[in-house]
Amino acid sequence: MSENNNISKSKLHGLWALTNRELKKWYKAPTVFILTLIQPVIWLGLLGNALNIGSLFSSSSFTPPTLTPPLTPTQAMQLGQYFQGLQNEIMGSTFGTTSYISFMAVGMIAFTALFTTMFSGMSVVWDRRLGFLNKALSTPVSRAVIILSKVLSATLRSMFQAAIILIIAVPLGFQFGAAFTPINILGVFAFLFLICLGLSSMFIAINIRSTRIETPMAVMNLLNLPLTFASSAFFPIERMPEWLQAVATVNPLSYTMNGMRQLLINPTINYSDLALQYAYVGIFAAVLTTIGIVLSWRFLNK
């Protein structure tokens, strides 16, 4: 009673079905969906403003010093402007923008990508425990497709969330750099695509062997903090202590963030740096995706 004539024998069949399964869990569950939108608002609104280094020495909080002879109002104003300029210069040379919230918003985008890929890596444990993985393995769907669908769904989610963060950041004071054109958004998504590909492949390869959720949780916690803080998420690498710099300069998240900052908030774009950043993130993605898929493949073909 089998009729195989209407069956697609393409190697990639089922990819969209499995990816969409992951995405549906997210966009069809209102609570989860709303929380993923609220999370960046909290990060930006709370942390972005609390850590707003720029406001520490803004001209509005500037009280002219009492000098003898006393300053004339014009001189006081000039002095105020001088400090404002000094602040902008310091901010600009340190963060590449005069607005700290813009600097951090870009960090937040990469940060969200890290978290989304982490959780999607953990979902493979559930698939195993609940028997879905075995079920899928008994169908003609390719093993690579099973893994790729996880990678792809995490990537699509991260890109969507990145767009939301950017939209939310604008009313919170996000300032695009002088070099920004709408085309650059595509460049940002290219960065996100690459980093998510690499990160989620890595997390899936870490998790695919475990049958308990506790082990991956511990591993994720261990990886999460160094990946975040030893990166340029909150602070530029050049101002870090040397040992931290060593970690941060190999961290692919730093390259992603710096590249995205060039495209979004910096006054000028250094194209040779940008090429280096794309190359670094691209190689990271290629290597980890290959390793991740090979490891998972070998495990699934036990």
């Binding site: 079905a17 399964r21 769907v141």
Partner: peptide, 25 residues
Amino acid sequence: PQEYTADEDLTGYENILLCADLYGI
């Protein structure tokens, strides 16, 4: 299978169609 492998967040119909997609139908 022995386990309940259907996805809890999807409807019964969606689950069947997902299985069909795994066979490329």
